[in-house]
Design a protein around this nucleic acid. Structure first.
Length: 576
RNA sequence: CGGGGUGUAGCGCAGCUUGGUAGCGCGUUUGGUUCGGGACCAAAAGGUCGCGGGUUCAAAUCCCGCCACUCCGACCA
C-alpha cells in the first residue's frame, strides 16, 4: 500500500472533544472518523488491525472446536418475546417495524438467535457439546457513548455460544474458553489482561468472568489481592471487614441537632465513622417500596450487589414521604417504625458501641450493638469493598483497587435461554432436559483501542506486530533522487513478493512529516532508504518501539527485514 | 433522563458583549528554494456562520424554537 493514496488524513492538532490517548491518536492517525455519537467509520489501518484481531480470535475459537456462523443483524421481535428480553431490555435495543408492520430489532447480542438456530427436534445427548460463534455488528443504543472506540453504539463483536448436557461439561468447556481467551490477548500483544470474577447482570446465569486490561481510563473498578491472586469486578466483589469491640456500652439517646450526615455526626460526637451505623434508603423501581440498608458509616452500598440481593431494579430514594415513617438524617435500626424492607449489611456484624439514628429529628443513639439491641435474622453483603479491606480469599488486609477496560467476557448462562425458548436434548434415559449454555464475547474495536491505550508513546500507537496494520513501514526519503526511488521501489516489490506486509511512503515530503506519519501509524518495523543510507550501501531498519536500529546491506535487506519480522512475530506468538 | 459546554473552510479556533455583509493558524493546490524529526518564499482555491422562525434598512452577532455534538452524573452483556 502506498501511503500517498491512502484515505484518512493524519494531522497534528489534537481533535476537539477527545479525552483519551487511543481516541486522540487514532483520530489524528486517520484510523477512523466519527459519523454520529458512538458510531465510527474505520479506514484501512484500523480495518486491518481489527481484521487481524479477528483472525487471531478465529484461530483460537476453531482450536476449541468452535463452528463459525453468521447471525443476522436484524431479527424478528418474536424470538426476543420468547426469551422475555423484548420487554425486559430498555431503550438500548433499537426496535423498528418492517413494511408489513412487524416488530423487528437490531441485534445487541445473539443468544436468542443462537437458540433459534439449534433448536428443533430434541437431539440426542451424543450430539453435544458444541459451540457456535460469529463476528457480527451489534447495535446498542448506549445512553452515553464515549472514549472513541472504547464505548460505542455500533461495534463488531465476536460472540460465541456453547451448548451442553451437564453443568460439569459446561464447566469443562468454560475452562477451555477461558484459556483460549488468555491466548487471544497474549497473541494480540497484551498478555497482561487478567480475568476477574464478574456480575452476570442482565445475561443471567451464575459464574462469569470479565477479561480486564488495567488502565486508569478504564470504566470498571477492579478489586485484586496481590497475596493470593483474588480478582473481581467491584460489582461482584465480596466485602469483608472485621469489627473489634471498642467497649460495650448501654444504648443511650443523645441530642444531635442539625447533624445529619455521617461526617457531621461523627465529628459532633467525636467518634470514628466506622463506629457509626448509617442507613441508606433505596426504592424498588416498579413499586417505589422503600428499602433501608444499615451499613457501617464509613462504607458505601454496592448497588449491583444490592440489586442482586433484593432481586429487582432499585434506585436511590429520591423523595421520602412523611407517611413512610422514615426520619431522614436520623434513621436507626432500633425503634424503627417505617414502612420499608430493612437489610443489615455484614459490615456491622460484631461491632459494638455504634452511633445510630434515633428515628427522631435531632437525636442519635450511642452504644448500639447489633444482635443485642435488635434482633438480626441474617446479614447480607451489599457493601463496596475498599483499598486495604480484607481479601475474601486469603483473609489478609491486602485488597487493591484499580481501573480496567473490559475487553471480553465469558458467562455460564445455564438454562435461561434454552428453557424459555424450548431447547432440549434427549438424555440417555429417554427424558427431555433443558440444554445448558455458556456464552463468550469479545468486542474487536474496543480491544483495538485498548491495545492502543496501553501501547503508545507521545507520537502515536506502537502496535504489537501480530495486529499491526502493516509489518513494515518503508520510507523513501528524497524520492526525487532517482537512486533512492529505484532502490525503495525495488525493496517494496521484493518484500511484498516475500509475503511481508509493507506500507510504502514515497511522497516527496520532509523527513519530519514522513516520520510523524510513520509514528502515528505505529507500524513496528521501519525501513528508511535515503541518499545517506545508500551512500553506506545500506538501508536503515529500526523498531517503532525504539528497541533497535541497524543498517542492513542493500542486497541483503529483504531477507534481513523478513527475518526481523518473523522474529518479532514468533516472540509474541510463542506464548506457551 | 438531570446538570454544564459547544456548533463559523478538511482540522483547530477568533469574531458575538456594543448588529454594518467573515478572519487567523494548520492542511490543500501551483511555482520556486530547501532536505534525516511536522522547512521557507510567493501566489491561489475553499464557508448554506448547525436548522427554522422573529426583530431590524441591515443578523455569525439580538430574541424564540428545534437539532446535533460534547463533558459530568444516572445508566450499561
Amino acid at each position: 500500500m502506498k501511503i500517498a493514496n491512502m484515505v484518512g488524513d493524519r494531522f497534528r492538532e489534537t481533535p476537539a472533544d477527545c479525552q483519551i490517548a487511543s481516541q486522540i491518536l487514532m483520530i489524528r492517525g486517520g484510523y477512523m472518523k466519527q459519523v454520529a455519537n458512538g458510531i465510527y467509520t474505520l479506514t484501512m489501518p484500523a480495518r486491518r488491525i481489527v481484521r487481524k484481531i479477528e483472525q487471531i480470535i478465529r484461530e483460537e475459537m476453531d482450536a476449541i472446536d468452535g463452528q463459525e456462523v453468521l447471525f443476522p443483524v436484524v431479527m424478528s421481535a418474536d424470538i426476543w418475546h420468547e426469551s422475555g428480553r423484548y420487554e425486559k431490555i430498555g431503550s438500548e435495543m433499537a426496535r423498528f417495524k418492517d413494511r408489513g408492520g412487524n416488530d423487528m430489532v437490531l441485534g445487541m447480542t445473539h443468544e436468542e438467535a443462537s437458540v433459534h438456530l439449534v433448536r428443533g427436534t430434541a437431539k440426542p445427548e451424543s450430539a453435544y457439546p458444541f459451540m457456535i460463534y460469529q463476528f457480527q455488528t451489534k447495535f446498542r443504543d448506549e445512553p452515553r457513548a464515549r472514549g472513541g472506540l472504547i464505548r460505542v453504539r455500533e461495534f463488531t463483536m465476536k460472540d460465541g455460544y456453547s451448548f451442553h448436557t451437564s453443568q460439569e461439561d459446561l464447566e469443562k468447556y468454560y475452562d477451555r474458553a477461558y484459556r483460549a481467551y488468555e491466548r487471544i490477548y497474549a497473541r494480540c500483544g497484551v498478555p497482561e489482561v487478567i480475568a476477574v470474577k464478574s456480575d452476570s447482570g442482565m445475561m443471567g446465569g451464575s459464574i462469569s468472568h470479565e477479561f480486564m486490561l488495567l488502565t486508569d481510563i478504564g470504566e470498571d473498578t477492579i478489586v485484586t489481592c496481590p497475596e493470593c491472586g483474588y480478582r473481581s469486578n467491584m460489582e461482584a466483589a465480596d466485602c469483608v471487614v472485621e469489627n473489634e469491640s471498642i467497649g460495650e456500652q448501654p444504648l443511650t439517646k443523645v441530642a444531635t441537632p442539625e447533624q445529619k450526615t455521617i461526617e457531621e455526626v461523627s465529628a459532633f460526637l467525636g467518634v470514628k465513622p466506622e463506629n457509626t451505623c448509617k442507613a441508606v434508603v433505596y426504592q424498588e423501581n416498579l413499586t417505589d417500596k422503600y428499602i433501608i440498608v444499615f451499613i457501617r458509616g464509613d462504607l458505601e452500598v454496592n448497588e449491583t450487589k444490592l440489586r442482586n440481593f433484593v432481586g429487582c431494579e432499585i434506585h436511590p430514594a429520591t423523595e421520602i414521604t412523611a407517611e413512610s415513617g422514615i426520619v431522614k438524617g436520623f434513621i436507626g435500626p432500633v425503634n424503627l417504625n417505617a414502612k420499608a424492607r430493612v437489610l443489615f449489611d455484614k459490615s456491622i456484624e460484631g461491632a459494638d458501641n455504634m452511633v445510630i439514628g434515633a428515628n427522631e429529628e435531632g437525636y442519635h443513639c450511642k452504644g448500639f450493638k447489633p444482635g443485642r439491641d435488635i434482633k438480626v435474622d441474617s446479614y447480607c453483603d451489599v457493601a463496596k469493598t475498599y483499598a486495604g479491606a480484607i481479601c475474601p480469599c486469603c483473609g489478609k488486609k491486602t485488597i487493591n483497587i484499580s481501573r480496567g477496560i473490559e475487553v471480553g467476557n465469558i458467562f455460564q448462562l445455564g438454562t435461561k435461554y434454552s428453557h424459555s425458548m424450548g431447547l432440549q436434548f434427549q438424555s440417555r434415559d429417554g427424558s427431555l432436559k433443558d440444554v445448558i449454555m455458556g456464552c463468550y464475547g469479545i468486542g474487536l474495536g474496543r480491544l483495538c483501542a485498548s491495545v492502543c491505550e496501553v501501547r503508545h508513546d507521545d507520537y502515536g500507537p506502537i502496535w504489537p506486530i501480530t495486529i499491526a496494520p502493516w509489518q513494515v513501514h518503508l520510507c523513501a526519503m528524497r524520492p526525487d533522487k532517482p537512486e533512492v526511488k529505484e532502490a525503495a521501489d525495488k525493496l517494496y516489490e521484493t518484500l511484498q513478493k516475500m509475503g511481508v506486509e509493507v506500507l510504502y511512503d514515497d511522497r516527496a515530503v520532509s523527513a519530519g512529516v514522513m516520520f510523524s506519519d510513520a509514528d502515528l501509524l505505529g507500524v513496528p518495523v521501519r525501513v528508511v532508504v535515503s541518499p545517506k543510507t545508500l551512500g553506506r550501501g545500506a538501508v536503515e531498519v529500526s523498531a517503532r518501539d525504539k528497541s533497535f536500529r541497524e543498517d542492513a546491506a542493500l542486497e541483503a535487506a529483504p531477507e534481513r527485514i523478513a527475518a526481523i519480522v518473523k522474529e518479532m512475530l514468533d516472540k509474541v506468538n510463542n506464548i506457551d
